[in-house]
Design a protein around this nucleic acid. Structure first.
Length: 917
RNA sequence: GCUCGGGUGGUGGAAUGGCAUACACGACGGCCUUAGAAGCCGUUGCCGCAAGGCGUGCAGGUUCAAGUCCUGUCCCGAGCACCA
């Protein structure tokens, strides 16, 4: 029986068979109860989600795990319990709930294990998945296991490859040389995490940066939309801000500087002088530019270096190339750089400024070159000081005209220049400092036609001027870089790409409609290779068997050693292939090709899995349009904040590409996002093997049961908070569950005799029942599980004190408890004679009228100090309360002989009498 | 350095500007028991016999009223980090 499926009411509860019966234990024997109901749910397929129907859908998703060999960490069930509570609650509220789970199963650890042991990563991955699945099932989560998927399954990665082909044909994938960590000793590329302190993690060998051919995705083409659309999603502000910062949009101007023809540079007849383009967010400070700096890797450095500077520049560039980005920024304390010997012309005033190279200018940002304005930029200022370059202030602050400061047109020795000028119609003194760095906005000075303008206006005016003179333009720049999308590894999705020579590519292009507007190529040893995608119909391109998982040794993945797979005859029309060692097949579409040896990074599979869950077995599309339309995107997505940028940004990018293709109906993948906090060890430190403070879910399930673990994880504190585990605190929630059991079950295992359909229970308990239904419901909606549990504890305490309890009250409470402690709730539900599953019963209603107490306690304050309380019927007016207050024996002494100055009355809450001191 | 988030009992934590410390842990006392476990009842912010006073990192401010709002400051945590 699927929970709330499209079955007629009469069919929803089939005749009771033995699995639907409660267990026979007389105590709260969770080791017996929990597997019993897990089996029941599995056999009944209680949590299967069916696509379609009239009920509203609710899609709640966990970030799927990487199935590591270490097994489940306590952090996993924290987020999973939260979503499971929401899933169960939403089902009870009448939603058709999709709550799936799968495996992000490609990745480095499995490959490292394979290298070490020689076993196929798939074998190890499968074993890890089995273990993860066992652990997750023991936690009793209401996943629809029929929708389980693994990114390593070729039926799945076929569609990962398909999406890549869409990116490729839209010109969003290209090949470029990019620096990677290379270990000469191991003859392999290393991932960032395999490099520790500049040495390889394995063996401790030195590593270096080396440029290798890489696939890159043009995520920057989507920068503006990735930024703008953040306003449409319900995400933690901190995460939005992190993405904003990562995208790093800044507005400014691009300015072209002509290179001055130095006599020492070789003159080239007929060649126009080179242009140096810079990006600046402060074009208004152009008059303050006293030198320029190029990144050491800048393409024009060679051309600009004079013979006298050649050796110094070459040495500096070599040194810079040896440093990683990390080292460059690590050694940020002191600026370094070298003069090229050349000068450029400042377009605004015709001045010659020296051109330097320095590694504080980054090659990947803006144009890789800057105009330096040391008076108003901290970094330029430091550099200028270090190398004795001149400083000219062009932004000042208006201050009151001080008579002892003499206005000066030239810069006085002390560097403080005071310039009288008209600012916004008034004569002001504008001070600027030629010996300090003053960042920030102000009034333009020493800037010709900009003088007197505030920064914002000066920017506009100079940009207009630059555009009119065609020496610059308004520009937007992003910090976001294109996404390095390849790994020199075995255990990842192979790229469905074959490299051809130009002539063959041209022939293929004649029959293939799915090629990018401009071909993707790379040149090697003077030969240009052209990337031809496999036709979509030829997918998946599966991983071949390899004899060794060790890298090829020349910077390529282990796939480069599989000659029969690598070197092929390729039919560019059908995508068929044969080993090149065989004779050339007959037919006009066969060409000689070499497969791409890179594989995709782990992000690829996780970029779109949430879409596959809507239709996980489809083999004609990544998901059917019906399923995509019905389930849409997750309504709630819960996972760690460590994915705040990369995974979530990459997935948004892919989703937008799919949206542009018209294959998904929404432009954003995750409507509402929440990050669960990290659980620390009992010592308050991060859990780690080396500290020996790791808590395993298995251990707790064995000692206290899953329901206790789930409840405790939620009771620990706010879901988003970082909080320490405590073995003592867990006893508290365990006792609570015991108490619930005792209040429902008598010592002989029968129903507690104080429960009956006709019982007259205390009015307070009835009121508490309604309050609890409301509070728990509200708290689940707001993901405040800790306070929901405390409310249930308050209820249980009242339940215990009540001499008689109505059956309706107990049943309602069990329903409210069910999302949190589903096994116990199911067991007690069945013991009370209800038909399982409690999961399928509609969420109980609360009666708003019951929530209103007839009497209210009103706090009486004198001068804001708590002096007593008065209990009065709801709605009692101020005058009546005041009359009671002045007579109250605890309050009266504070009022004796005092004059009332003011009375503040908040109905049903507080009465504050302000008296003369 | 920049940008966020957070400092509340012995502990985890709770509090639409309106009783600070709900709920739980721990501790203490009691009941039950041959004993223990479990359970139940009570006490538990600090000072004080009490009346009362003082208490949400610290210093100010706004308000009849501040854990909550504002200013400054210290500490802890997270992210970014030469992005022109």
């Amino acid at each position: 029986m699927t929970c709330g499926g499209r079955l007629a009411q009469s069919e929803r509860f089939p005749p009771l068979s033995s699995p639907a019966m409660p267990t026979a234990c007389t105590d709260y024997n969770f080791t017996q109860i929990e597997p019993h109901w897990q089996t029941f749910w599995e056999e009944q397929r209680t949590f299967r989600a069916e696509t379609g129907g009239t009920r509203p859908k609710y899609y709640v998703l966990d970030m799927f795990p990487y199935p590591s060999g270490a097994g489940l960490h306590i952090g996993h069930p924290e987020g999973y319990t939260a979503t499971d509570i929401v899933a169960r609650y939403k089902r009870a509220k009448g939603f058709n709930v999709l709550h799936p789970i799968g495996w992000d199963a490609f990745g480095l650890p499995a490959e490292q294990h394979a290298v070490k042991t020689g076993t196929h990563p798939a074998t190890n991955t499968a074993a890890n998945i089995t273990n993860f699945k066992r652990q997750i099932k023991a936690l009793g989560f209401s996943y629809d296991w029929d929708r389980e998927l693994a990114t390593t399954d070729e039926k799945y990665y076929r569609w990962t490859q398909w999406i890549f082909l869409q990116l490729f044909s839209r010109g969003l994938a290209y090949v470029d040389e990019r620096p990677v960590w290379w270990c000469p000793e191991l003859r392999t590329v290393l991932a960032n995490e395999e490099v520790v302190d500049g040495k390889s993690e394995v063996g401790g060998f030195p590593v270096e940066r080396r440029n290798l051919r890489q696939w890159v995705l043009r995520i920057t083409a989507y920068a503006e939309r990735l930024l703008a659309d953040l306003k449409d999603v319900d995400w933690p502000d901190s995460t939005k801000r992190m993405q904003e910062a990562w995208i790093g949009r800044s507005e400014g101007a691009e300015v072209s500087f002509e290179v001055a023809q130095a006599s020492s540079l070789p003159q080239q007849a007929g060649r126009k002088p080179a242009l140096l383009k810079v990006f600046t967010t402060r074009p208004d400070t152009l008059f303050g530019c006293t030198y320029m700096v190029l990144a050491p890797e800048h393409l024009l450095v060679e051309d600009l270096t004079t013979p006298a500077q050649r050796d110094a520049v070459a040495a500096y560039r070599k040194k810079a190339a040896g440093k990683s980005d990390l080292e460059r920024t690590d050694l940020a304390k002191e600026k370094s750089g070298v003069f090229t010997g050349s000068y450029a012309i400042n377009p605004v005033n015709g001045e010659r400024v020296p051109v330097w190279i320095a590694d504080y200018v980054l090659t990947g940002y803006g144009t890789g070159a800057i105009m330096a304005v040391p008076a108003h930029d901290e970094r330029d200022f430091e550099f200028a000081k270090q190398f004795g370059l001149s400083i000219r202030a062009v932004v000042g602050k208006t201050e009151l005209l001080a008579f002892d400061i003499v206005p000066s047109a030239t810069v006085p020795d002390h560097g403080l220049q005071t310039i009288p000028m008209t600012v916004e119609g008034k004569l002001r003194a504008v001070n600027c400092y030629h010996k300090h760095c003053v960042a920030g906005e102000g009034i333009a000075v020493n800037s010709g036609f900009l003088d007197g303008l505030p920064t914002a206006e000066a920017k506009k005016k100079i940009i207009d001027w630059l555009e009119a003179k065609a020496v610059g333009k308004k520009t937007v720049t992003y910090k976001l870089r294109d996404w390095l999308f390849s790994r020199q590894r075995y255990w990842g999705e192979p790229f469905p790409i074959v490299w051809l020579n130009e002539a063959d590519y041209r022939r293929a292009a004649a029959v293939r409609m799915d090629l990018p507007a401009s071909p993707v190529t790379f040149a090697q040893d003077g030969v240009t290779h052209f990337a031809l995608p496999l036709p979509a119909g030829a997918l998946p391109l599966t991983l071949p068997e390899v004899s060794s998982y060790l890298p090829s040794g020349n910077g390529e993945s282990p796939l480069a050693n599989v000659t029969d797979w690598l070197e092929i005859w390729f039919n560019f029309k059908t995508g068929e292939s044969l080993p090149a060692a065989q004779p050339s097949p007959a037919g006009e579409h066969w060409v000689r090709g070499r497969r791409e040896t890179n594989t995709m990074p782990q992000w690829a599979g996780s970029c779109w899995y949430y879409l596959r869950f809507t239709d996980p077995t489809n083999d004609t599309a990544f998901a059917s349009p019906e399923a995509l339309r019905y389930w849409g995107v997750p309504d709630l997505y819960v996972g760690g904040a460590e994915h705040a940028v990369l995974h979530l940004l990459y997935a948004r990018f892919w989703h937008k590409v799919l949206f542009d293709l018209g294959v998904v109906p929404q432009s954003e993948p995750f409507t509402k996002l929440f990050h669960q906090g990290i659980i620390l060890g009992e010592d308050g430190e991060k859990m780690s093997k080396s500290r020996g403070n790791v808590v395993s879910p298995d251990t707790i399930i064995a000692s206290h049961g899953t329901d206790t673990l789930r409840l405790y994880l939620m009771f620990l504190g706010p879901l988003e908070a970082m909080k320490p585990w405590s073995m003592q605190q867990i006893e508290g929630v365990h006792r609570f569950l015991h108490k619930v059991w005792r209040e429902c079950v008598a010592a002989d295992g029968g129903v507690n005799p104080k429960i009956s359909a006709t019982a007259t229970e205390p009015a307070e308990l009835t009121r508490l029942r309604h309050e609890t239904i409301k509070k728990v419901g509200d708290d689940i909606e707001a993901l405040r599980f800790n306070t929901a549990i405390s409310q249930m504890m308050i209820f249980a305490n009242a339940l215990q004190k009540a001499p008689a309890v109505s059956r309706a009250t107990v049943l309602a409470f069990l329903q409210v408890l069910a999302p949190f402690a589903p096994h116990l709730a199911e067991e007690l539900w069945a013991r009370l004679g209800e038909k399982p599953s409690v999961q399928c019963a509609p969420w109980p209603q609360f009666d708003a009228a019951q929530l209103v107490a007839t009497e209210k306690k009103i706090v009486v304050q004198v001068n804001g100090k708590h002096r007593g309380e008065i209990v009065a019927p709801t709605g009692t007016a101020q005058a009546a309360i005041l009359a009671l207050a002045v007579k109250n024996e605890r309050i009266a002494p504070h009022l004796v002989g005092k004059t009332f100055k003011r009375i503040i009355f908040v109905p049903e809450k507080i009465l504050n009498i302000v008296v003369e001191q």
